[in-house]
Simulated assay, not measured.
Amino acid sequence: PGPAQGNFQVIERKKKSAKPKADPLFKPEYTKINREIIVETTAPSDVNPSEIRTLVNARIQDESCHFISARRTPKDNFILETKFVTPATKAMEYAKEIEEALLTLQVPVAVIRANSKWSKFLLHGIPTTVGEGIEAGQLVASEIRSNYGENFQLAQVPRWISRAETRMEKTHS
């Protein structure tokens, strides 16, 4: 309370003390995405993900690269997650052992890769002369790399949003 002024008393608002943020008890060295290996398959498999994890871990000599979990995705692929202190890139050194274990379980492997963050975006002003398909995508990707950084990778074949007939009279789209 402050001093009285006339019939009114001025009240000063008390400042709330800032609560200290709790320190997390456990903070992993690498994020979950950085610790995941994705096994893309060519056909569905009835194999239990825990069987995959057990067999893969048995094949890998380095215990720091063992997996703590395995799960199936809706597209019938598998995701193997490394320990909290091991990045997926280190575990990828054992891709051959992982593939051998999966073949033993008759899992039809297409690709084994480390998971990574990705983005989907729309580009404007692309010359219509670049064409279509992967060659056009590589050309656009190299242009993006030169302007925005070397870390850009093309994950899928880019596609035009407009139809070819619509782009015929345009120089850019």
Rank of each mutant, 00 (worst) to 15 (best):
T82H: 04
F78K: 03
E100Q: 14
F84C: 05
P74E: 14
L105P: 03
L80Q: 01
L103F: 11
A88V: 05
D76N: 15
R71F: 10
L80M: 00
I98A: 00
K75V: 01
A91Y: 07
I98D: 03
K75R: 14
K75S: 13
E81L: 06
E93Y: 07
V85K: 11
V85D: 15
Q106R: 13
I79S: 01
V109D: 05
I68R: 12
A88P: 05
P108R: 02
F84R: 08
R72W: 03
P108Y: 09
A91F: 04
E93K: 15
A95P: 02
K75E: 14
T89H: 01
T104C: 06
L103S: 11
A91S: 13
I68P: 00
A101E: 03
F84E: 12
V85N: 15
P87Y: 02
K75M: 12
E97Y: 08
S69T: 06
P74H: 12
V85H: 15
S69N: 09
K90Q: 10
A91M: 08
R71S: 11
K96M: 02
I98H: 02
K75H: 10
E99D: 11
K96Y: 10
P74W: 02
A70D: 05
E99G: 00
I68F: 07
T89D: 11
A95C: 05
K96F: 08
M92G: 01
P74G: 10
V107E: 13
Y94D: 10
T89F: 03
Y94V: 00
L105E: 05
K83E: 12
V85I: 11
P108L: 01
A101W: 01
S69M: 05
P108G: 06
E81G: 02
E93D: 13
E97K: 14
F78R: 07
A95Q: 14
Q106T: 05
Q106P: 01
A95G: 06
E97G: 06
I68E: 09
L102F: 06
L102N: 07
I68W: 08
L102K: 04
S69F: 06
I68V: 15
R71Q: 13
K83M: 13
T73V: 07
A101R: 09
F78H: 06
I98F: 08
I79V: 14
L105H: 02
D76V: 00
K90P: 01
K90R: 08
N77A: 03
L103N: 14
R72M: 14
R72C: 11
R72F: 05
E97I: 06
N77D: 14
P74D: 15
L102D: 01
A70N: 04
E100V: 13
M92S: 07
Y94I: 09
R72S: 15
T82I: 01
Y94H: 15
E99M: 11
A95R: 10
A101V: 02
T86E: 05
I79Y: 03
T73Y: 10
D76A: 14
E93F: 10
P87D: 10
E81V: 01
A95S: 14
T82S: 10
F78Y: 15
K83D: 15
T82D: 05
A95I: 09
L80W: 04
T82Q: 00
T82P: 07
E93N: 13
F84V: 11
R71M: 07
E97H: 13
A95Y: 00
L103A: 09
V85M: 14
I68M: 12
K96H: 12
L102S: 00
R72H: 10
